[in-house]
Design a protein around this nucleic acid. Structure first.
Lengths: 211, 211
DNA sequence: GACTGGCCTGAACGACGGGTCAGGATCGCT
DNA sequence: AGCGATCCTGACCCGTCGTTCAGGCCAGTC
């Protein structure tokens, strides 16, 4: 809403602030994020932040979902460009491993996921957003599975695609935590290998060709 | 009002405070936990909390590890009493499903795990503690596997027990999050079923007998 | 009974940070 | 140019904690 008379400028600021906020949260954590930090990062006064978002809480929730939106949309675009389902699955997996794709730092969007989870435990608004964000990701795994079955790459007689997607999603979450917090034992490469192996077994295909 | 005949040779205040702190954290979340809340819960002045723990941060970290210690020790005791490895594995799984065992609320110790993870991302002290806590749990899964192989309940020709334990641990983490945050789609019962099924397949045994 | 030392309180301090506001700058339009 | 809406600032207010501190209470000891 808003954006009536001057859609361009307002939208830019809005987005600018969300990006800055996501950056700061990634950097310092949700609880250590001050309005002042966000203001500084986009060279603006603290008052303006509140002018746009009304309250800190609203901004934080929006920033968390915004950041997730961004990576989801980017990933979706990238997936669409890949012809084979095995390639798509591989890309999904790579993108899920903390610090594996070059464009991400070690403390990447996974740090934001953790913050989302904790907040969703007690903030109904965040819980609602989380449900949407989560379903969306699981959904794209399921879609890749269905796509592969449609093209004949994956065997069509497996379990329900949504169930498989949920299991893969859960495993990815669990492994990502291990990588994030314990990267001596569980390295990104190892997580990747496990994910590929499990996906191959659950879906019943050979990922070798995609890599 | 205060100090009615110092009861018992200083019943352990230290422990009392830790328990209260863990309760409050579970209840309100780490960031919403105030020293005042903890003090009230054990009928004591805020000053005393600092008298014992020096700073809020120290108390919080200690409380998180304390709570985890408690459930770990309890679980260990319970495991030792069970003769069969399949029973032990089943018990481990049940204890890992949020809200499955009757003695836990829906927002149980998993809420504390989430807090530990987030804090461990940026607090080296907490990261160190987490590594210990995590390894300990994975270790007990591995031990059950080895125990079952020793008694002949489980086939002895499977993968490395530590690797299997880590995979099971990761899956449990991921599923627990789903249950905690999305209990319409992923119910405790469903998580339990999945865990049992995966454990059976990974380890190669039949859990039917244990239930 | 006086002393000592561990527990404990309650008031107060001080910093920090979210939110408010009055006004200034800027833009688009007539 | 004149005007109103929008954008933006910087100072300020104010509640909320963590933390400190001076001292009180209570055992056990000499």
């Amino acid at each position: 809403m808003a954006t009536k008379t001057r859609p361009k400028a307002q939208r830019d600021r809005h987005q600018e602030i969300l990006e800055a906020a996501a950056q700061v949260i990634t950097d310092r954590g949700l609880t250590e994020t001050r309005i002042q930090d966000i203001a500084e990062r986009c060279g603006v006064s603290p008052g303006l932040i509140l002018y746009y978002f009304g309250s800190k809480d609203r901004l934080l929730v929006e920033a968390l979902t915004y950041a997730n939106d961004q990576s989801f949309l980017r990933t979706s675009r990238e997936l669409r460009r890949m012809p084979s389902a095995a390639e798509r699955m591989d890309h999904l997996i790579r993108g899920s491993v903390p610090g594996m794709l070059p464009e991400f730092e070690l403390l990447d969007e996974w740090a934001l996921w953790l913050e989302i989870w904790v907040r969703a435990l007690r903030d109904p608004q965040m819980a609602k957003e989380h449900e949407m964000l989560d379903r969306r990701w699981v959904q794209s795994i399921a879609e890749v599975i269905r796509y592969g079955r449609q093209t004949g790459e994956f065997p069509a007689d497996g379990h329900d695609a949504d169930d498989l997607a949920m299991q893969i999603g859960a495993m990815v979450d669990g492994l990502a935590i291990q990588v994030l917090l314990n990267d001596t034992v569980m390295t990104p490469q190892r997580m990747y290998d496990i994910c590929v192996e499990v996906a191959e077994r659950l879906i019943g295909y050979d990922a070798g060709a995609a890599r």
